[in-house]
Design a protein around this nucleic acid. Structure first.
Lengths: 157, 157
DNA sequence: CTAAATGCAAAATTTTTGCAGTCCC
DNA sequence: GGGACTGCAAAAATTTTGCATTTAG
């Protein structure tokens, strides 16, 4: 769960990103590299606005609309994914391999988790009739430990 | 899957809606009744705007902001749910009992399905450590039969 | 050099809010 | 009758677009 990204895996991800861009004839601009790196480094599924804020320290001229445009382009080339939420802002992730989400309804943090036994198990029969299934994933809602503790401190049992 | 709502179950749902409103001291206005009925009748998880359009035929003075405000109120009282999507518009459902979603990436239709064996099965151990889990649900992405056929007609194999 | 990408400003889209009048209980 | 609810209009929040300039390849 709390896997921290090692410098190596981020470097590998950047290399594979650059490779994909070259193959797809996407220009490797400074902005694209930094936006992708920031998203790949993030574990919290940030929105375009949040990404922009984080990057502005290092790139003061980066504009928000470039972040939007870049994320849209990345999405088209399957370099990033929009995360399903009930939020008004769209959230993104660079993690493209199969995984699931657990969302804290209190602090809204979205964490990734893996569940290979679910991934390998078949769907109900009637769904397999529905059409061509590309992907199935689980979303869990609840309250994370940290938020539970905050609540307990307010209303001790 | 393609369960059509019978007049009876809709009527029951309306009665239980009215009961909840009375208990919660929510006034039973014409607008609230019609918005709820329209959403309960729908099988396609409409947005506020779509609901508004559907209702405008029968209620020409109904305003879009009332639909928004009403849905927000309903959500607070757990009468409706926002559906997780990657759409810019928020989508809603009045179906509050446990179910899952299958989404056609081509026509964007969201259908409900049930999967009791999944509902009853335990989560991975590390997730149970994460906090208090309220709910788990599955989202399937793919292409529905109808859209597959349209594609085949365009590009015959 | 040239097509693609960026930054700026302005527009479009989606949702929320203040306020005056209306309606449910 | 009184407080909650609605409609209107205006604002806020989020995302997209047109265009002149810059930049990667």
């Amino acid at each position: 769960m709390s896997e921290k990204k090692t410098k190596n895996s981020l470097q590998q991800q950047m290399e594979s990103f650059e490779e994909t861009c070259r193959t797809a004839d996407l220009k490797l601009t400074h902005q694209r590299l930094e936006i992708y790196r920031e998203l790949a480094r993030a574990t919290d599924h940030p929105s375009a606005e949040v990404l922009h804020k984080r990057l502005q320290k290092a790139m003061p001229t980066l504009s928000l609309d470039t972040v939007y445009r870049t994320l849209t382009t990345f999405e088209q080339y399957h370099l990033v994914k929009k995360v399903q939420t009930v939020d008004s802002q769209a959230h993104f992730e660079a993690q493209m391999s199969q995984h699931h989400h657990v969302i804290c309804d209190s602090c809204k943090e979205i964490m990734d988790f893996h569940w290979s036994s679910f991934d390998g198990s078949p769907l109900p029969e009637d769904i397999r009739q529905w059409g061509a299934i590309k992907n199935k994933s689980v979303t869990i809602h609840g309250t994370c430990r940290r938020c539970q503790e905050v609540k307990e401190r307010k209303n001790p049992a």
